[in-house]
């Protein structure tokens, strides 16, 4: 069953003449780990904004979890994002004035759905945050009590991953989450993220300008001139 489907999409920002994105067809299956490579200026940011429901396309349809999010109102899209999506930024992912645990539990504060999902698993937001942090090796007291601004880049990204994963959202979007890390840390982070997504049965959309880790994913594609070009495919997961 596909979890993300794009059809005949055309998108341009206000004032632009030619469409920035023109995607005839894109499908990502449930639990699939999808790698999307794109140089800067390839329309990567726009595509992520569309997937996250911040903007809507002028033409075509975006279907997430079977729902047409381009038909939703802004508030509904916000709600949808909060409930079903975890988002990891390139860097500086954390709210500086919140503790590590508060950062991780943020989605439970804004989304009832995510909070309920945590409670349904027999835990609570705080314990779930500690469990996730423990998984990524950050549950030590010296980390938990540190101001988030004093964590290393790698630690910050791992905290961000925990936040994206809390409440088991169906879709995780990672926007160049490793670009601020050194190579060794990059690979470790990607492996960790892949493992956690598998454990949560989350669909992962991983975006990077650097194709060198694409072999770790189930499926990969390249964004070029506003269009999607499928590259290699491993016969694994729900990929078709």
């Amino acid at each position: 069953m596909e979890q993300l489907k794009i059809k005949d999409l055309e998108f341009k920002w206000n004032g632009q003449e030619n469409p920035l994105l023109r995607i005839d067809h894109l499908r990502i299956e449930k639990g699939e780990r999808f790698f999307l490579q794109g140089e800067s200026g390839s329309g990567k940011t726009s595509l992520l904004s569309l997937l996250a429901g911040i903007t809507t396309p002028q033409k075509g349809a975006i279907e997430l979890l079977g729902q047409l999010i381009n038909k939703m109102k802004a508030g509904e899209r916000d709600e949808f994002r909060a409930s079903y999506m975890g988002y990891i930024f390139q860097q500086f992912n954390l709210v500086p004035y919140l503790s590590v645990i508060e950062n991780v539990t943020l989605p439970c504060q804004f989304s009832n759905h995510r909070n309920k999902a945590v409670l349904a698993s027999g835990s609570n937001a705080r314990d779930e945050a500690i469990r996730l942090l423990d998984h990524v090796g950050l549950a030590g007291k010296e980390v938990l009590h540190k101001p988030v601004t004093e964590l290393s880049m790698g630690q910050q990204q791992r905290v961000a991953a925990c936040r994206a994963l809390i409440g088991s959202p169906e879709i995780i979007i990672a926007d160049e989450p490793t670009s601020s890390l050194d190579e060794k840390a990059q690979q470790a982070f990607i492996r960790l993220l892949l493992a956690e997504c598998s454990a949560n049965q989350a669909t992962l959309v991983f975006v990077s300008h650097d194709a060198k880790f694409s072999h770790l994913f189930d499926k990969s594609a390249r964004l070029e001139n506003g269009g999607i070009i499928y590259t290699e495919q491993k016969s694994k997961g729900g990929a078709k």
Binding site: A74, G75, D78, R81, A82, P96, L106, P107, F110
Partner: peptide, 12 residues
């Protein structure tokens, strides 16, 4: 900070 909050589900 606002983008982070928005990404975790905060509405405008």
């Amino acid at each position: 900070e606002m983008a982070i909050l928005r990404s975790t589900g905060a509405k405008p």
